[in-house]
Design a protein around this nucleic acid. Structure first.
Length: 887
DNA sequence: AACCTCACG
DNA sequence: ACGTACGTGAGGTTG
């Protein structure tokens, strides 16, 4: 067995850990006020590395101080860096403690950097035949990669790493690891603050190194370069280049006083580590070692409860006064099917608990829950309504929904766990379900009554205690109308839609399934024939091997783990080999088979032949709904083959039909409203085909010009792009034009629709100032990255800043329409039922004779849901199945 | 659990 | 030079 050596670049990992967790800096402090995020991150990294690498020897190298031989030869080395924050420097001594307790050695050497220690030991290890892993946050160390030394550079956080071997360096840069030194000598390094040669950046440096092998090689052949500015710089700055090479070179012979024999990895020093974790307040690490955290854990305040007894129900329930908090415990996520584990009801004085949900059916409790005059506070009203409905109880009088209110205050506070949500509001008198019930296979409702009932009572108390503070915050945000008039009433509408369910004909699906199965087998054998062997077509890894190695098709795009085989890639390869088209067809059919045939068959309830989805009302960042178990918002429609699936969605009664209405261009209409752009508004008011009129404007065509389909398609892509936060590159990709052409289209768009350009600018500025954006109903989305230093994070936040008010306002509009629609159906005693919402579309089932009523009523309710500066337009269709919808 | 791919608005 | 359009959920493979 070759021996293994682990070398860790201590300072760079600590830095990375610190900045990776910077946003949560104040959440990671111990009881003495010491910041601990970097220490914590360091340990995460360590555990992650030791998970897959088993060292015989291990060392963490640290920088000894500011002065090194490099600063002596070049005084500006690492100059211009910001001072390390105190919150970080205070952690360094503790990182050393942690390293020791984890059984690793640490070392530093005055006058030298950690890099040089690592370089020297890696060389010793290479010579001694060790396999070495270097872990660092600093790309510079990749120059040390060799046949026996791999350099793992941390990526996003500290546990994700990119492994640099000589082959990986060759693949990325086309040079050897040691040539990285030459490249850096020429291009310089802004973070280490050495300059390199003027005007030479990464691309040029790389080209020169590939051509001449090294800095020395370059200067040996400098005469061969054609006369150019670049050559002048190179000649003038030869001394600088050579000096920079020394600065960039990590030493392989630093005068260190330790050798491999001194570095034996000791393994975790359990006692020391436990003490250390206690001192740092690292609860999760302690729990992993089965040690209870001590000290600073804020104890959940004690609570008294009474267990309900069937023969004393009237008396016990009779003692409750005023608003009550109620919680029916359904341990499975799907409340349509979950067993009932117990419940709690209480008024702030008394907490009544039981494991027996059947008790709820008895008069005193049933009457109370069905009494509109008794205000109820709950967590996730929709789930409670559905659960109680299964027990024959109609929950009314819900006033406060902790989950819903929390989500409106901050869309990130959307956990299904009451304890977690409470924690987001700094309320700690209730634990999370995971803490009480465990997780994974061990998760179970506790047998111990005291443990279980205490947890239930704590939940009800948390709901009661958080009611006023959350209402206060909603008021402060001007969100009470959003809560009271939209989200809370909507919960009831959604519960009704979920319980109604949609009838799905299993026979239709099964018949389609067996046809698809045959076709799949055919294509499969064709593919194997073309490939010359059998393989798993569903495996992108195996497929990539066949396409790009065996059949030598050109690689168009890579993913971080290998070759991309996504549709856009395969489409580009389709005319090069018949196998590509076969794979595309295989994918299409396999998707239908697994997700839509098998998948849907699995979730048809045997009791009523219906599918009962769950709409998640507190998940999306924009205010849209989402649909799970199953997702009924992505049933195929675009391609004719997939669209067939909709034949299985049928009315639940004979003589009924499916009816559907959808908003036309709702997001662009919202855009016209929000931006106030006169031209865009005018086009909508004139009832124009909006993509055609956009084409006319941005391509400067006369008003009566015929718009050819290709132009309309491009204009449509521009319109979408505007809504999503456009880039010229992105648009160019999508409509297959040059980047500069795409840029011109966008410029033309902004010229024609100046209000839109101003809106984008103003919205981003608002987000940067306030940290959030809002929809027309004051729905809020926080954008913590809006002022981020990282270009891509900041850009992403900027795009969402402008998209969220549009997508979110469209979501607001249909939500209002749904509430009014449900109200109209009930008021008019119609039999029609609202079944599905698909973002801009509502689907109903109704007796044939009600179809004419819906044709008038639904569009009228939908287009008057809110008053915008442009009209809303609604189109309706109906038919015998969801597939057969026609105007 | 992470990743890739693909279904929808 | 960055890294590229917004919002979702589900199934399959891989480690």
């Amino acid at each position: 067995m070759t021996k293994q050596l682990l070398l860790i670049d201590g300072n760079s990992i600590v830095f990375r850990a610190f900045f990776a967790m910077h946003s949560q800096i104040d959440k990671f402090t111990n009881k003495d006020g010491l910041h601990t995020a970097a220490i914590y991150g360091f340990k995460l990294m360590l555990d992650h590395v030791l998970d897959s690498f088993y060292p015989d020897a291990a060392l963490v190298a640290f920088d000894a101080g500011k002065v090194t031989f490099r600063t002596k030869m070049y005084s500006d080395y690492k100059g211009g860096r910001n001072k390390t924050p105190e919150e970080l420097t205070e952690q360094l001594p503790y990182v050393r403690q942690l390293v020791k307790a984890s059984g690793l050695h640490s070392y530093e050497l005055s006058d030298y950097e950690a890099d040089d220690i690592i370089g020297t030991l890696a060389k010793e290890a290479d010579d001694a035949g060790y396999t070495t892993l270097i872990v660092t946050g600093d790309r510079d160390l990749t120059q040390l990669a060799s046949d026996h030394t791999t350099v793992a550079v941390t990526h996003k956080g500290v546990t994700e790493t990119e492994h640099y071997t000589p082959a990986h360096v060759e693949e990325k840069l086309g040079i050897t690891p040691t040539q990285i030194i030459d490249m850096k000598a020429l291009m310089g390094d802004s973070s280490d603050n050495y300059p390199g040669v003027t005007k030479i950046g990464e691309k040029t440096a790389l080209r020169l190194v590939k051509q001449f092998g090294s800095v020395e090689g370059l200067y040996d052949h400098i005469d061969e370069l054609k006369k150019s500015k670049m050559k002048e710089h190179l000649v003038e700055e030869e001394d600088i280049a050579r000096e920079c090479k020394t600065l960039a070179t990590i030493l392989r012979d630093a005068p260190i006083k330790v050798g491999l024999k001194d570095l034996t990895y000791q393994g975790e020093q359990t006692e020391e580590l436990v003490d250390f974790y206690q001192q740092m307040g690292f609860k999760s690490f302690l729990q992993k070692m089965d040690v209870a955290p001590e000290g600073d854990e804020p104890a959940v305040a004690p609570i008294e409860y009474t267990e309900l007894a069937a023969d004393q129900l009237a008396k016990q329930v009779g003692e409750l006064e005023g608003p009550v908090s109620f919680y029916l415990e359904m341990p499975a996520a799907n409340y349509h099917l979950s067993p009932f584990a117990g419940f709690v009801i209480g008024d702030g004085q008394h907490w009544l608990v039981s494991r027996d949900a059947e008790l709820l059916k008895q008069a005193p409790l049933k009457k109370l829950l069905e009494d509109p005059a008794v205000e109820k506070n709950v967590f996730n009203a929709k789930g409670q309504i559905v659960g109680l409905h299964r027990l024959g109880i109609n929950l009314v009088g819900v006033d406060f929904d902790l989950l819903l209110a929390s989500y409106l205050l901050n869309t990130n506070d959307n956990s299904n766990d009451l304890g977690k949500v409470a924690g987001e509001h700094d309320y700690h008198n209730v634990q999370t379900d995971e803490e009480v019930y465990g997780k994974g296979v061990k998760r179970a409702v506790p047998e111990d009554d005291k443990v279980f009932f205490t947890h239930l009572a704590n939940k009800a108390r948390a709901i009661t205690d958080l009611r006023q503070p959350l209402y206060d915050q909603l008021k402060e945000n001007q969100q009470m109308p959003l809560y009271t008039d939209i989200e809370l009433p909507l919960t009831r509408v959604l519960a009704q839609m979920e319980m109604t369910g949609v009838h799905v004909d299993a026979h239709t699906l099964k018949n389609m399934g067996s046809k698809l199965k045959e076709r799949l087998a055919e294509i499969e054998s064709q593919i194997y024939e073309e490939a010359g062997e059998e393989f798993n077509i569903n495996s992108t890894k195996q497929l990539g091997h066949i396409l790009f190695e065996k059949l030598k098709l050109p690689v168009i795009k890579k993913t971080k783990t290998g070759y991309s085989t996504a549709v856009d890639v395969l489409e580009k390869l389709a005319d090069r080999a018949p196998i590509v088209a076969q794979i595309l067809e295989y994918r299409q059919i396999a998707k239908l088979q697994s997700t839509y045939i098998t998948g849907l068959l699995k979730v048809i309830h045997s009791s009523d032949q219906k599918i009962h989805t769950r709409y998640l009302q507190t998940l999306t960042q924009t205010g849209r709904l989402s649909s799970v178990d199953p997702n009924l918002q992505n049933i195929p429609v675009r391609l004719p083959e997939g669209r067939q699936i909709r034949r299985a969605f049928v009315p639940s009664h004979d003589g009924w039909q499916i009816f559907s209405s959808d908003y036309s261009q709702v997001e662009l209409r919202v855009l016209a409203h929000i931006t106030g752009d006169k031209n865009l508004q005018e086009d909508f008011k004139n009832g124009e085909d909006i993509h055609a009129s956009t084409a006319r404007r941005i391509f400067h065509l006369p008003a009566d010009a015929e718009i050819d389909p290709n132009m309309r398609r491009r204009a449509k892509a521009v319109n979408f792009g505007i809504v999503y936060g456009i880039s010229d590159y992105g648009l160019a990709q999508r409509i297959h034009v040059s980047r500069s052409q795409a840029h011109e289209f966008i410029q033309n768009y902004f010229h024609e629709f100046p209000g839109v350009e101003k809106y984008i600018h103003d919205t981003v500025a608002y987000a940067k100032e306030h940290g959030y954006v809002e929809t027309i109903t004051h729905r809020r989305r926080y954008l913590p990255d809006i002022n981020a230093k990282s270009f891509s994070r900041r850009s992403f936040a900027e795009r969402t800043a402008m998209n969220t008010p549009i997508q979110g306002s469209a979501a607001d509009i249909i939500k209002i329409a749904m509430i009014r629609m449900q109200h109209e159906l009930e008021q008019r005693h119609l039999q029609a039922k609202m079944l599905l919402q698909i973002h801009d579309e509502l689907v109903f089932e109704a007796p044939k004779e009600e179809i004419p009523v819906l044709q008038k009523l639904v569009p009228q309710v939908m287009d008057s849901a809110v008053k915008l500066d442009v009209p809303l337009k609604v189109d309706s269709k109906f038919g015998d199945t969801w597939y057969d919808l026609k105007k």
